[in-house]
Amino acid sequence: MRRIRIRVVAGLVIALSALSAFAFEWPADAGRFRFGFGAPRGGFLRGVEFGSADGLVTAADDGELTFSAQGPRLPGGYPLVAGSLVVVAHASSMTTVYAGLKPGSVSSYLKNVRKGDVLGRSSEAKDARGVSFYTFDAKERRFINPMIVMPSVSDDKPPVIRSMALSLEADGSYADQSKPIRQGSYYVVVDAYDLSPSGSQSSPFDLRVLIDGSERGRMVYDAAWAADGRATLFGGVGVEEGAYLVADGRVRFGPFSLSRGRVLVTVAASDYASNRREQTYSISVQ
């Protein structure tokens, strides 16, 4: 059932990608693309983030400016965490959000905007965050990974799988994999990243965990949404953010029951350009 759902979502992603490919333009120099959808930036980044160098921020497509805020906070006190905010509604029920623009630089007088119109300037914002760009499907009320709807970015490097650790479901402690581990129920905690065009460690697009060759977990970084106040990730499976992201930014799959014998845990990561890397870990279970 889950495989079917994943295929359906993958199909939707491909269809959406095909329909909207090149409809949108990058709002800033794609070479400054620093963190992608899902990068741990004080939580799961729901858009993409550009480097903080000074530059123009432009509208990704024709649309209408519905909201801009330039102060440090909204009237009720809520801080604009990345800086000034601009929201543009597009005909396709897609809304684009631009956060972190330099205060005072926002072209708030614009109402109808054309693709490429200057919305403001980027600047170094709080916590050295640059401009963040979000694509939000207003009909489905979901953030969509901007990589799906933006022109592709040249990328010939596969993701990097730095480590895989097993943590006990019961108490969250990590097993010493240099020795045989006891049979039981474990989470597979993965540290994997993909280098962004600016050379920063960002998220891959697709992460899979296989146990003894059989796929047991898969996360496609396609969408993020909220329901009843809970942040949820990945259209195919709908995982709660708190259950997926470990505090240090690694990601968690499972729990999986590991039985006695030698178990092969394979982690496969691919990026949006389909560069792929796979790493297999042999675990002795007693």
């Binding site: 909204l74 905010l85 929201v87 949404w225």
Partner: peptide, 14 residues
Amino acid sequence: WEYAFPCQLSAFSA
């Protein structure tokens, strides 16, 4: 508690 809204907030009051 922590509460997630579906997209960015443009207004807030408590």
